[in-house]
Design a protein around this nucleic acid. Sequence first.
DNA 1: TAGTGGTCTAGACCACCTG
DNA 2: AGGTGGTCTAGACCACTAC
Lengths: 238, 238
Amino acid sequence: MNSYRYQDIYSKIKKSIETNHYRAGKLLPTQEQLANEFNVSRVTIKKALNCLEKENLIYTKQGSGTYVKPRLDKFPDNETLPLDYPVGVTYSHRDAKIKNQILKFDARMPSKKEKTALELNDSDPVYDIRRLRFVNDKVYSLEHTIIPTKIAPIDTKILEGSLYDYLGKRGLKITDAHRIIQALNATQKEAELLKIKEDTAILSINQVCYDQKARPFELSRSIFIGNQSKFGLDVHLD
Amino acid sequence: MNSYRYQDIYSKIKKSIETNHYRAGKLLPTQEQLANEFNVSRVTIKKALNCLEKENLIYTKQGSGTYVKPRLDKFPDNETLPLDYPVGVTYSHRDAKIKNQILKFDARMPSKKEKTALELNDSDPVYDIRRLRFVNDKVYSLEHTIIPTKIAPIDTKILEGSLYDYLGKRGLKITDAHRIIQALNATQKEAELLKIKEDTAILSINQVCYDQKARPFELSRSIFIGNQSKFGLDVHLD
DNA sequence: TAGTGGTCTAGACCACCTG
DNA sequence: AGGTGGTCTAGACCACTAC
């Protein structure tokens, strides 16, 4: 029961915006009026409005009022994948048929770079995983993942499903990720695996994942076929 | 004078974290103690801490305390460009020598797609601009920009500098941008302009920019040479 | 059970925009 | 000048963690 007053109010106002009860570009009632309507203090209204503002649904102008933002409709085509959410295919293609082919599953000691990036001790081994991912039986991406073995025991069965779901169930939550994106020409080997011609443009995403305590727990590189994958990103500047 | 108590406290605590007075991974004083120390109410402390949490410098655990996050050092090499800030080169390469070569500067009526995307009336023309951008005398990117003429008068002089700076001075602030990123093989014409071989991988960024009222005011496509440009992104999930 | 962060109030004052 | 959002207080109670 995650039931706080401000969350309740937040949901109700949000619904009112979505159902066009509060019209885009128009003023919301004053915070005072809302406070009366919901029988709470103005501070609580403000908290709810702050959530809406963070979600880009409204904006406030001091001395003038609170306005509803016109709806910017995200990514209408399901082809476009959000770049600001976990890379795993499972999150994006909810309704599609996902398959993972495991090309490599091994454990070894980390390289110097890996040890540094994952903040490991000399005694900590890592899993070294390569997977080819299919969406609706079509080759979709190639992933290389490094995870310390101490994070969680992993087997091939898990790797055929969603790794993030598995880790999530064990209490490990991704809260931050650091990504580096680059366009490259596919090497011969990459092209072979992705069933494309050599030198076809691919999108490469290097990622470090962090948990809530900012401890790194995964290092990965994913590559996608350029003309088959679009990534979208909504930037918000303060 | 943007001087609020919570901002002041925010800055002071931030400095204390940066100077390692409050150590990474360790507990901060309780909110109560901080409230006494700064002679404010606990609510004000909380507001300051919320700002720090939003910036990813601390995290709170109910019933336990407030912890300092280990520092994740952004993008150490200046090669990597932030993907969550304006695309313009001027923002990124502060210390480099920037030059813009104008390939095309024209005004015309918008296409149907452009008219829709920019929410234009039948009578609104747009500027159609193509620029080749150089960093330290090296070809860096190719940009195609569409801007309604009613947004601001633009001339070639302005286009040789930073368009965003110019628009900013006129009171137009980018607050949101919607981007679509894709890796592609350069066409013959693109390759020629960027002085690369045909089919070299390029990174394409399509962008719609919005002002504070969520009104679109710019449509652009920028392409970058794949193996010369890396883009970075810090993702934060709630 | 004790201690910490999370929420909420009622009222006050400040900063800003609009007529 | 009047009205709106932004900040701040002092105190209360709730929810969670750790022991």
